[in-house]
């Protein structure tokens, strides 16, 4: 049995740890609120944009138009680009490992094979993993600001659409974490390019276009990619902070539990020591009386 002093030292060390995890929980909670707000606020826009593209799907999917819109062009996939969206920091439970595992599994199932996948890492954790794993990176983005604006994602959009239009890659995917609620986040894969027009929802309407269909679609399609990449990042950030908050809350709870257990052991040890001392003194007194 450890001595009471050792136990006391462990108790105070665990107390310190729990203070840190509690502070991290608070920080994550406030960041989470902001990130969740941002993700829910931007969803209507991307959903409506999706609907708009859906309304134009019949026109956009027409074979003769495809040549005019390189972002829609579907070709045989010989080489693809995968954007892996992780966090810069750890201590967020299984957040990073889940999305990385999902990404690896997705890449393994691709027919073009690992050597034909261009990796773009967003977030330090994913970058570090891919470097250790030995998958070369074509680009990495770390230290993304907490409050993302669409300007922050412009460089990623540029890489994705330039490489696609230039024919360096035939498809672009984003592996990210979809925010569902504070307790649930799911890693997912989203096809960014070529743009997959959503199923035509309504009846085909004969739209009037101003100035003309080509100009409208040429403005709409790049915007759609921007918004989709932006949205996946917002989803990931909200998921990250939620996962971290929950992980830190669990850590704090566990620390409390261990602390209680150790306090119990400490009291027992202390009592045993006192009992031992008393019986020693008593024994000594009896011995002297003889």
């Amino acid at each position: 049995m450890p001595t009471p002093r050792e136990i006391r030292r462990r108790i105070s060390s665990i107390k310190n740890t729990s203070q840190i995890t509690r502070a991290m929980e608070m920080v994550a909670a406030s960041k989470m609120r902001r990130a969740q707000q941002a993700v829910t606020a931007s969803r209507p826009y991307s959903e409506r944009l999706r609907l708009m593209i859906g309304d134009l799907a019949a026109m956009a999917a027409g074979a003769e138009e495809q040549a005019e819109f390189p972002l829609l062009e579907r070709r045989e996939i010989k080489r693809s680009q995968v954007m892996l969206i992780t966090a810069d920091r750890g201590l967020a439970g299984a957040f990073n490992s889940n999305v990385i595992r999902h990404g690896l599994q997705f890449m393994r199932e691709r027919e073009e094979g690992f050597e034909n996948i261009d990796m773009v890492a967003i977030g330090r954790k994913g970058r570090d993993f891919m470097t250790r794993f030995g998958q070369p990176l074509v680009a990495d983005f770390t230290n993304m600001p907490d409050r993302l604006s669409i300007d922050d994602v412009r460089p990623m959009i540029q890489i994705a659409s330039e490489d696609f239009i230039a024919g360096k890659v035939d498809a672009v995917y984003a592996v990210y974490t979809q925010f569902i609620n504070t307790l649930r986040q799911e890693p997912r894969v989203l096809q960014i390019l070529p743009i997959e027009p959503p199923e035509d929802t309504g009846e085909a309407r004969d739209y009037i276009f101003e100035p003309d269909p080509t100009t409208v679609l040429n403005a709409l399609l790049p915007r759609y990619i921007e918004v989709q990449i932006y949205q996946t990042l917002l989803e990931s950030v909200a998921s990250e902070h939620s996962a971290r908050m929950v992980a830190m809350r669990n850590a704090t709870d566990n620390a409390k539990e261990i602390q209680d257990e150790l306090t119990m052991t400490y009291n027992k040890a202390r009592q045993a020591q006192i009992t031992a001392e008393v019986s020693e003194i008593a024994a000594g007194a009896v011995a002297q009386q003889r």
């Binding site: 708009m52 309304d55 134009l56 309407r205 004969d206 739209y207 009037i208 276009f209 101003e210 100035p211 100009t215 409208v216 403005a219």
Partner: peptide, 19 residues
């Protein structure tokens, strides 16, 4: 403010898509 000048939109307008 449409790309080709101001647009007045009333009910029963034909389907239109503009910048």
């Amino acid at each position: 403010p449409g790309a080709d000048g101001a647009l007045g939109l009333l009910p029963s307008h034909a389907p239109l898509f503009t910048l």
